[in-house]
């Protein structure tokens, strides 16, 4: 068993009057890919955003319970520091209206890095890791908005990787992409696993089955079951999980 990277204990999240998550206990191991699955509104995205405190951006969110990153409580951490350590990739690719280079360099500049050579090195390294370098190395100054959808999403991954996070959160990273671009993202996730811990939310169960080591199933704000992905998809122990993965929700 890999050492625990993130530990979630008794997590409860409320939006205004609605309870989004309740009594969630979950551990994320170092260098694993953990998939969060469940029907819409089950709380999987809320759980994901709790890990880098992005829920705080929304008004009226209340949270109880504890989340620790390598043993340190994240609610006591400087949020900037936390988000540097826990990066995020969103559902819709959202590059800034800047050049490819400046997109990747953004987090580094925010963190106060100014050395041009260091920036260039880190940008290249991140683009290589995100499997985009070969496609863009000759046009780093071009607008990021001119890239294709799949390239934009890989650029967003590169942007998240540039600040060298330990954990990468992915919120349905391929849901807006065609099958080939999706396959590339999935391939990328396999490669990134060796360096990063990845938590991915997906509506696509086959995708969860393909990319993740472990899968957690959430339903109506509760964690129903978490286990090895193979087990969840061949022999889940909870009836709700079984009904969900076989398509018996109505």
């Amino acid at each position: 068993m890999e050492p625990v990277k993130v530990r979630i204990e008794g997590l409860e999240v409320h939006y205004a009057s609605k309870r989004a998550l309740h009594g969630v206990h979950l551990e994320v191991n170092t260098n694993e890919v953990l998939a969060l699955i469940g029907p819409s509104g089950c709380g999987k995205s809320t759980l994901l955003r709790a890990l880098n405190r992005m829920n705080e951006v929304l008004p009226g969110v209340k949270q109880r319970g504890s989340i620790t990153l390598e043993g340190d409580r994240i609610d006591q951490m400087d949020v900037v520091e936390l988000r540097r350590r826990v990066g995020m990739v969103f559902q819709r690719s959202n590059p800034f209206a800047k050049s490819i280079f400046e997109n990747v360099a953004f987090g580094l500049r925010i963190a106060g890095l100014t050395s041009t050579s260091e920036l260039a090195g880190r940008v290249e390294q991140s683009l290589v890791q995100a499997a985009l370098w070969d496609e863009v190395k000759d046009r780093l100054g071009d607008s990021a908005l001119a890239l294709s959808g799949g390239q934009q999403q890989r650029l967003c991954i590169a942007r998240a990787l540039a600040v060298q996070p330990e954990v990468v959160l992915m919120d349905e990273p391929a849901s807006a992409l065609d099958p080939i671009a999706t396959a590339r993202i999935e391939e990328l996730i396999h490669e990134l696993k060796t360096r990063y811990t990845i938590v991915i939310v997906t509506h696509n169960m086959q995708q969860a089955a393909r990319v993740s080591d472990r899968t957690a199933f959430l339903y109506m704000g509760e964690l129903v079951e978490v286990g090895r992905t193979e087990t969840i998809f061949t022999n889940p122990s909870m009836k709700r999980t079984e009904d969900y993965v076989t398509g018996k929700f109505g």
Binding site: V57, F90, N94, A97, I110, C156, R159, V163
Partner: peptide, 21 residues
Amino acid sequence: PSEVRLASLALGATRAQTLGR
């Protein structure tokens, strides 16, 4: 797009940095 703001915040930028940059 609001996603762009979120992306900036998720990279550790403050609100003011997100606005300005």
